[in-house]
Write a protein that binds this DNA or RNA. Structure first.
Length: 186
DNA sequence: CTTAGGATCGCCT
DNA sequence: GGCGATCCTAAGC
């Protein structure tokens, strides 16, 4: 029994919840999404809060595409754009349970521990080989594979991580009981 | 042109 | 729990 495909025109918290349990591959490497965060316009913690800029342009583009940004000059982080074009909403992929292409991910990360391969947005980017070249691409395009969960998924939520504003919004979502989260839920 | 700071990570104590 | 890495962006002068 397969759930319907994710509607990226939906509000970002809804998409973030729906993405939990989905399988994401980039050039055949990846696994099951176990942690996401939603961001939206009118959200002080969002890159889109101050309006469109060259950097966040993809976030104001069509839904169902990627928004890739670099964090702290080091880490590449992957988002999926939500809502209608021009709105400025997205979902940050924070953690993945590694399933496919383990050796490739180990090589890219320089680690053996499967638990740490994709436990955090920067780690996800490194393990999946995400770079600026991946910014603004359709998630339905050849290099990507996104398959909805094949059954019911138990999702938990809590406050987002690593932000100083709008911390109270419980827009972080996770797969209940997963050992591949970037950190436990409160 | 200059500058401050960030949706993080890894290593230190 | 704290801090340095490391670089790009955006805003200010």
């Amino acid at each position: 029994m397969t759930l319907p495909a994710i509607d990226f025109f939906s509000p970002s918290p809804e998409v973030a919840r729906r993405l939990i349990g989905s399988t994401l591959l980039v050039d055949g490497v990846g696994g099951r999404i176990v942690e996401t965060e939603a961001y939206d316009r009118e959200d002080p913690a969002s890159h889109s809060f101050c309006g469109p800029t060259p950097r966040n342009a993809a976030m104001f583009g069509p839904p169902g595409r990627t928004y890739v940004y670099q964090s702290y000059g080091i880490h590449w982080c992957l988002n999926l754009v939500c809502r209608e074009a021009g709105h400025g909403a997205g979902v940050l992929i924070r953690a993945i349970e590694p399933l496919t292409g383990l050796d490739m991910m180990r090589a890219r990360r320089g680690l053996d521990d499967v638990r740490l391969l994709c436990a955090g947005p920067g780690r996800v980017g490194q393990a999946l080989g995400i770079t600026r070249e991946h910014n603004g691409l359709a998630i339905a395009a050849p290099h990507f594979e996104l398959c909805p969960a094949s059954g019911p998924v138990q999702v938990i939520c809590g406050p987002r991580v690593g932000i100083s504003k709008a911390v109270e919004q419980p827009w972080r979502f996770g797969l209940a009981g997963s050992r591949f989260l970037s950190r436990p839920f409160g």
